[in-house]
């Protein structure tokens, strides 16, 4: 058994660790709230933009409407935008995402390129010898739309230039504090399902077939709105992932704090035992010494008297 001094040091260091993890947990808890608020803020625009796109796509002659809406007959190259975190200490958050990516695209039928968002994901992808064509790491803690719109623009450029025939977005969907799901979503070509919208708006359906008047020309408007919408989807995915990352970190830090506290109490018990044992043996020593002295006194007293 370790000495009492060693045990005291060990307890102190475990206590320090539990303080650090508790602080990290509190920080993540407040960050996750902010991330959720930011996420909710983008929802109205995203739903509205989606509605507008569905209406436009519902117009006659959709396949010739815009290259970003048109599916390609043969798909030869695939691009995946993988969104992970910049930092660790978030449980299995980063490795879960990359495992999901590799399960989906590791043995894909055609060559896959990656755009990595987040340092951890980039490192993991490169270590497994994947082709990472762009890396957006060290994003600001609360990214604005302007901070991340370049990612969407790059995806659109790659698609239009023919370097990719389809683009997927892989991110972690924030369901609630304890549940986050790795999710894959097709980013380009934009698949607009016009049938569901028609059913939902059945009573208003008379207005959908009416052809739009475009101001300025139709192409120009779509050039404007579709890339922006794509960038917005990337932005939303990043916000979802951020909320998930903070939630995952919070949960893993709470576990760490709980474990540390458990360890502290068992160490404390052990320490108390050690201390008690020392005291007992010291007492025994003293008692033994006193006893011996008394015996000696009786002995010598008897001789003298």
């Amino acid at each position: 058994m370790a000495s009492a001094r060693e045990m005291r040091l060990r307890i102190r260091s475990v206590k320090n660790i539990s303080q650090v993890t508790r602080a990290l947990q509190a920080v993540s808890a407040s960050k996750v709230r902010k991330a959720i608020a930011a996420l909710m803020g983008t929802r109205p625009y995203a739903t509205k933009a989606w509605q507008v796109l569905t209406h436009v796509a519902g117009q006659p002659g959709r396949d010739t409407l815009h290259p970003l809406l048109t599916a390609r007959a043969t798909v030869r190259k695939t691009l995946v935008v993988a969104i992970s975190g910049d930092r660790g200490l978030a449980g299995a958050y980063n490795s879960n995402l990359i495992r999901f990516v590799l399960k989906k695209f590791g043995n894909y039928s055609n060559p896959v390129n990656y755009i990595a968002v987040g340092r951890k994901g980039r490192d993991l992808l490169i270590r497994r010898h994947n082709n990472v064509i762009a890396d957006f790491s060290n994003l600001p803690p609360a990214p604005t739309f302007a901070d991340v719109s370049a990612i969407g623009r790059l995806a659109v450029d790659e698609f239009l230039s023919g370097n990719a025939d389809e683009v997927f977005l892989v991110y972690t969907d924030f369901v609630n504090m304890v549940r986050q799901d790795s999710t894959v979503k097709k980013l380009l070509p934009l698949e607009v399902d016009t049938t569901t919208e028609r059913v939902e708006n059945y009573e208003n359906s008379h207005r959908i077939p009416a052809a739009y008047q475009y101001e300025p020309a139709e192409g120009e408007i779509l050039d404007e709105i579709i890339p922006r919408f794509t960038a917005l989807q990337v932005y939303q995915a990043i916000l979802e992932s951020l909320a998930s990352e903070h939630a995952a970190r919070m949960v893993s830090m709470r576990n760490a704090t709980d474990n540390a506290n458990e360890l502290i109490s068992s160490l404390q018990l052990q320490y108390n035992k050690v201390r008690q044992q020392t005291i007992t043996s010291d007492m025994l020593d003293i008692a033994g010494g006193a006893e011996a002295l008394a015996q000696a006194n009786i002995h010598s007293g008897g001789e003298n008297g």
Binding site: Y214, P216, E220
Partner: peptide
Amino acid sequence: GSDGEMGILPHHSPVLTT
């Protein structure tokens, strides 16, 4: 609108504009 200001009243015909 990018081609000029436009006033929209109820029952306007469908328009998409920047």
